[in-house]
Structure formats: C-alpha cells, structure tokens
Design a protein around this nucleic acid. Structure first.
Ligand SMILES: [Mn+2]
Ligand SMILES: [Mn+2]
Ligand SMILES: [Zn+2]
Ligand SMILES: [Zn+2]
Lengths: 157, 157
DNA sequence: ATATAAATGAAAATCATTTTCAATAACACT
DNA sequence: AGTGTTATTGAAAATGATTTTCATTTATAT
C-alpha cells in the first residue's frame, strides 16, 4: 500500500519504473491534473493547477514531465493554433474513448468528437497499412482535426 | 501584358486585387518560391530563397505575407513538430493534387501521399457534414497526418 | 542509514514570431 | 507620365513559449 498514491491509477508507478524512470511527486501531481479534466490544458495551465497543491513545483518541471509523458505515450500533445502546446491524457478520465478534434479558427475552441470514429479508425487502419508498406514507414500515431467556425463565432459575425 | 509577372500564374494579381490587397514584389517573389518547390518550407527557408533575387525583402515581410496567403487560402500552414511552421501552396506546382502527410517523429522528414485520398476525402466529406450539423460548426478545412518512423530512422535504430 | 544518479527549480538563454514606426511603393486618378 | 493616398515594407526591438544550465534535492538500491 503506497501511501501517496490515492488519486490516480497506481499502475502509473509501475509504468514509470518499467521504463527506468522514477515516479516522483511532481510527476504524480501532473498526471493527477490531467486525469481530472476533459479540457486541453497548456503547460502553464497545468503548472497553475499543480501549484495549488504543490506550490514548489516549477514550470520547468512541468515542461520536462510533459515531454516525458508524451514520449512514454501516456499523453498526447496538440497544436491547435493558439501559439502554445496543449496536452491531453492519451487514455482520458475513466478510459475515455479515442477521439478527434474540431477546432474553431476564430476563438480556438476545441471540441472532442467521436462521431464517425469507428469508420475513421477503420479507414485509418487500412491507410496506415498501405502507407507502411509503400513508404516503409512504421506508423505509430495519427492526427485528424477539422477546422472551421464554431457555433458562437459563425453567428457573431 | 504586365511586365514583372512572367513566372507565376497571373491570376494571383487578380486574386489579390479582388480582396483589396496590392500585389507587390515581395508577395510575388514569395509565391514564386512556393510554386517552385514540392518541399515544405519554413518562413526562414522562404526568406533565404527570396533573398537570392530580392536581397532587400525582409523576414518580417515574409511572415506577414505568409499569414496573408494562409488567410486568403492560397497557402497551407503546418506544424510538423520541429518548432517552426511550414508552408505549402494549397494548389501545388501544376495543380498538384490534394494530399496528406506522413511525418517522421525522429528526423522530421515529411512525405506527401495521395494513396487512399479518395476514400479519405469521401469519408471526410461525410464526417464534415455530420459534425457541421451536430455541433453547428462551419467546417472549412481538415488536417490528417500520420506519425511514425521513416525508412531510414527505423533501420538506423 | 547511506550512496548514487536521476530529478528538480530558479534563473538565464534561446529563438520563432510579432510589434513598432518611420520610410517606401502600388495604384487610382489626373 | 505625374501626383496623392494609403497599404505595405524593413530594421530594430519586443514578446513569449520553451529549453538550457547548474547547483541542490530526492527516489531508491544497497
Ligand atoms: Mn480532446
Ligand atoms: Mn505536402
Ligand atoms: Zn469560435
Ligand atoms: Zn526519419
């Protein structure tokens, strides 16, 4: 019974150790923040959130940890066009499903959607296979985003 | 018979004027560079290329022009993860076809592909329709990228 | 408890992109 | 072709997200 790990999935600890990394307080805290939201947080967002509980965790550590989490495949990093990277747990709260994004080019709102996801994923799978063979690429990931004007922005102008 | 416009599509001029913009030497030069390559150039790449012919065109103007071209829909802006934006004519040299990208997460190589593009575009069309209706988004664009290890990087470890 | 190397935090550095502002040039009109 | 208006430009400075540096701290194997 590890004392500190009350909130998040305890398998995180093993996942870190398995990769030869230490499971530290800041890392736990950052994962806790990410696992407690459906939003797409920036490094600074996460820094502020962590800061409430652990005021001495620095922004540098947040950046370093996020880079590590992305590298480990626990977190996805996105560019939605607002000049800062956004992060999301690759397996969302309570194992939220794989999804893609709708991005408003005016206000930068981001909407998760899972509609058509099965068809998309099926086609993506075939495409990945075809591309792997043709270009000898080892494909590990994909990105799909739709851009446009959100409800509010299309009406207000 | 406009004197300067020998290289590029003369309709660019009209396109600019139609939007109320002036068609200037730097703008022409930047479009010429973009229309003469299949690569995905950064602002600095374009700056250097333009500089060979017009040494007094500044990097600032390159950035401003690219922003304008993206806004006009003549150019696409991409983030392939190497910390700088990359640009591509939306209608490539001799009307190259709509395509998507394969990105190497190790060396940042980018490969254009058009395989499966018809199926993809068909599904994207349906998805766009469905999403527009459901979220009341006016969708204008989409992005599809596959990430992985390229031929070279997967072999060289 | 101790040793060791990984991880951290504060401050400084980096660097792509943006802003400022005076000078220039596109083009509508003679 | 010349002129006036105003968008556009270029140099320099500013911005701001992210990275680097380096001395200190901490997780964990012993
Ligand atoms: Mn999401
Ligand atoms: Mn391309
Ligand atoms: Zn919006
Ligand atoms: Zn590669």
């Amino acid at each position: 019974m590890r004392s500190r790990h009350m909130g998040g999935p305890p398998w995180w600890h093993g996942r870190f150790r398995g990769c030869g990394y230490r499971f530290t307080v800041p890392r736990q805290a950052i994962l806790d923040v990410l696992s407690g939201t459906l939003k797409h947080l920036s490094a600074e967002d996460i820094y502020f959130a962590v800061h409430k509980t652990y005021p001495n965790v620095g922004l540098t550590t947040v950046y370093r940890t996020l880079e590590l989490l992305v590298h480990m495949g626990l977190v996805f990093k996105f560019d939605f066009g607002d000049g800062r990277a956004r992060y999301e747990l690759s397996e969302g709260p309570k194992g939220a499903r794989h999804h893609h994004h709708l991005v408003c080019t005016s206000c930068n709102r981001v909407v998760d959607y899972t509609d058509f996801i099965d068809e998309e994923v099926e086609l993506l799978g075939r495409t990945e296979k075809g591309l792997s063979d043709k270009f000898n690429f080892k494909i590990t990931n994909h990105l799909i985003q739709f851009y446009g004007l959100c409800d509010k922005c299309r009406n207000s102008q």
